[in-house]
Design a protein around this nucleic acid. Structure first.
Length: 350
DNA sequence: CTCATTTGACCCGC
DNA sequence: GCGGGTCAAATGAG
């Protein structure tokens, strides 16, 4: 019981911390740069973090696992609307909680639930962003009543890092250009530390599946970088990767949330902590092998997944040298990172 | 060869 | 029995 509560608290801390840090970043950007869509996106992500935190709070409250009250009465979306942005037409993503009426199964109450709507356009496939940096694996698709072939995704690192986040994507009945994405559970994998919380616009994965491996490489490299830097200055480096993806969200998020550190020192000043749930992070960084053991203990029912899990574990250590992005224009060794390192390569908010 | 997706089968709650 | 959700063998892509 307490462990569950602690986990929820960590998730909450994670969300709130991210929201705070994004707010700091926004403040900085507003002071130093001209208005741009980046500001809107950053605002959106800030609000999303807080909304998710509220979602967790409400969910925990309903299950009695966390005795905290949501700061708003009624639906949070009434007070914190992502769509509140005057440019929401471009971002066009609403965020609403539905835990009150979606929990028809007691077992399925075990995970927090929220829904995100993503609008798809013919030009760029998705407005706003397409990917939150999370890596998903599709595990099912089924036509159900009132939905056209909803797809089911789970976190790629479910077995490696015991991350039980899932999402369901289905086309909106009202507007065929809108896809409703229902997220279930929060990421406990490393990705959550590097990715922006409002998770991937899932349709991207239906319309464009390629970024998955790219995300994995990015994640692997990020993990590697973080491990390497953690012992040095408790800082981490997330360089700007630009993938040939149809969408730019991963690229964008890498820029907008440079997981801190040297890059943040440049942009935000040396007093920018950007601590993303250290407890969560650390426990996850070294959870791969233990998860593997756990899996063995519980009995592996899918050898293919086990093998891929092992491959992921191995690749996480080898990606720095083998991955195409490992040979990028930035030095891997953080010590060698020049404070003036051009994180604005390919335009940092330009 | 590896890994992600597809898709029919299966499980489970109502 | 029905329907939503998940599993896992088959298949395909890179």
């Amino acid at each position: 019981m307490e462990s569950t509560s602690t986990w929820e608290q960590q998730m909450l801390i994670n969300e709130l911390t991210q929201g705070m840090e994004r707010a700091k970043q926004l403040r900085f950007y507003l002071c130093t740069t001209s208005p741009s869509e980046a500001h809107d996106l950053l605002l959106q992500r800030i609000l999303s973090s807080y909304e998710k935190a509220l979602s967790i709070l409400k969910w925990s409250g309903s299950t009695g696992q966390l005795q905290l009250a949501a700061p708003t009465s009624g639906a949070p979306e009434s007070s914190i609307s992502v769509d509140g942005s005057p440019r929401s037409e471009e971002l066009n993503k609403t965020f609403r909680e539905q835990q009150e009426h979606r929990d028809t199964s007691k077992k399925r109450k075990m995970l927090p639930l929220w829904t995100e709507q993503v609008r798809v356009t013919s030009e760029n496939g998705l407005e706003g962003h397409n990917d939150d940096g999370y890596s998903w694996r599709k595990y099912g698709q089924k036509d159900i009543l009132g939905a056209k072939y909803p797809s089911y995704y789970r976190c790629t690192y479910r077995h490696v890092q015991n991350c039980w986040a899932t999402k369901q994507v289905q086309r909106s009945d009202d507007d065929p250009t809108v896809f409703e994405i229902t997220y279930k559970g929060s990421h406990t994998c490393n990705q959550s530390n590097n990715a922006v919380q409002p998770p991937a616009s899932p349709e991207n994965q239906e319309l464009n599946h390629k970024p998955q491996q790219q995300n994995q490489m990015l994640f692997d490299l990020r993990a590697k970088l973080r491990v390497n830097t953690e012992g040095l200055d408790n800082k981490e480096i997330t360089p700007h990767f630009s993938f040939p993806s149809t969408f730019a969200s991963v690229d964008f998020e890498s820029r907008i949330f440079p997981i801190s550190t040297l890059a943040d020192d440049v942009h935000l000043g040396a007093n920018s902590p950007l601590v993303v749930s250290p407890a969560l992070s650390e426990s996850n960084y070294f959870s791969a092998s233990s998860t593997y053991e756990m899996k063995r203990f519980r009995g592996v029912h899918n050898l293919q997944h086990l093998e891929s899990d092992i491959a992921e574990i191995v690749s996480a250590h080898a990606s720095t040298t083998n991955s195409p992005i490992g040979g990028m224009e930035f030095p891997i060794d953080p010590v060698e990172l020049d404070p003036n390192f051009p994180f604005n390569v390919q335009g940092f908010f330009t």
